[in-house]
């Protein structure tokens, strides 16, 4: 199995091939999709893309952490983290596509 890494450019290329927009416009639209998803998450909204998955923002409480090297206690401030829950379709495709 040859593992590749796809980037924005590959997504833009797919849009270009599928819809026939110029590469430049395709790249702008990929960016625009990512921006809208990010902005919604930053506003605290969950983003549910049916048959893809759900991005949701969770608030984590403050807790005392420890520097594992020095054993020193350090406060960890309350923060918001993003979690992604893949759809059943995605899980199924990934499981069957990577079967050895």
């Amino acid at each position: 199995m040859v593992d590749k890494t796809l980037t924005r450019m590959d997504l833009a290329e797919a849009v270009h091939a599928e819809v026939g927009l110029s590469r430049n416009d395709s790249a702008d639209l990929v960016e625009s999709v990512l921006t809208h998803v990010s902005d919604a998450l930053v506003r605290g909204e969950a983003v549910k893309i049916s048959s893809f998955g759900t991005f949701s923002v969770r608030a984590k409480a403050a807790r005392i952490g420890r520097n594992p090297k020095t054993g020193e206690e350090v406060p960890i401030h309350p923060r918001r983290v993003l979690t992604f829950r893949p759809s059943h379709l995605m899980k199924g495709r990934v499981a069957t596509g990577n079967k050895s």
């Binding site: 797919a14 990512l34 998803v37 048959s51 995605m90 596509g97």
Partner: peptide, 27 residues
């Protein structure tokens, strides 16, 4: 509609082939 669907489908297809999709700044 086609553009948005293509983007998400492409991510699924990549992962189904064992590839990574790296979108700097997003994830």
């Amino acid at each position: 509609e086609k553009i948005v669907n293509t983007i998400f489908d492409e991510v699924i297809e990549a992962m189904a082939s064992g590839d990574r999709v790296e979108l700097r700044g997003f994830g």
